[in-house]
């Protein structure tokens, strides 16, 4: 049982690292000039299946990777994703079934929340000109692009859970 958990942890770690590389190397095609934040969808879909504590760990890990990619404040994404993944993990343990509609609903809340906070903290508060323009041309398309990829992560991580949960 412990070995299975370690294996899943290792696979999730590799998945997040690969997605971090994809997110930061402009491999993903740009849509409307923006690229998606892959780590959010991955962390949330892992939290959906794994529950609150592993979800919290994955959220913090993915958030730290996003912070490493260039955020001015180290830990801001780790905080947002850590809390979001913890809440989603505990909700799917206590209240909801861990399925795609629940994940989509959670992403519909977390992705805009993350982008709006980024916009406020890194664009509006420093007083850069063109805040509304940036929201329209960068943050909003990025939210939609990130959200649109959610089913991919659901399928991927569902596959990992099925493969490594209780079969070894």
């Amino acid at each position: 049982m412990r070995l299975r958990g370690m294996m899943r942890g290792g696979i999730y770690g590799i998945e997040l690292l690969m997605l971090y590389i994809l997110q930061t190397t402009a491999v993903m095609p740009a849509v409307c000039g923006v690229r998606p934040l892959l780590l959010i969808g991955a962390a949330m879909s892992i939290a959906l299946s794994e529950g609150e504590i592993p979800g919290l760990a994955v959220g913090i890990g993915a958030g730290l990777l996003m912070d490493l990619a260039g955020a001015e404040i180290l830990g801001i994404h780790a905080l947002i994703l850590g809390v979001a993944c913890y809440v989603l993990g505990s909700m799917t343990t206590e209240l909801f079934k861990a399925n795609l509609p629940v994940l989509l609903l959670a992403m519909a809340v977390v992705v805009p929340l993350n982008s709006m906070l980024e916009w406020l903290i890194f664009f509006v508060l420093p007083g850069y000109p063109g805040a509304v323009y940036a929201l329209q041309t960068h943050y909003a398309p990025q939210m939609l692009y990130t959200f649109a990829l959610t089913p991919l992560f659901y399928v991927l991580n569902r596959g990992i859970v099925r493969r490594f949960h209780r079969k070894i």
């Binding site: 402009a26 690229r35 998606p36 934040l37 990619a69 260039g70 890194f122 990025q142």
Partner: peptide, 14 residues
């Protein structure tokens, strides 16, 4: 150049 910050609206490089 090993990376480009997707979340940076001004497109920073790593």
């Amino acid at each position: 150049v090993v990376g480009r910050d997707s979340s940076d609206p001004f497109g920073g490089i790593i």
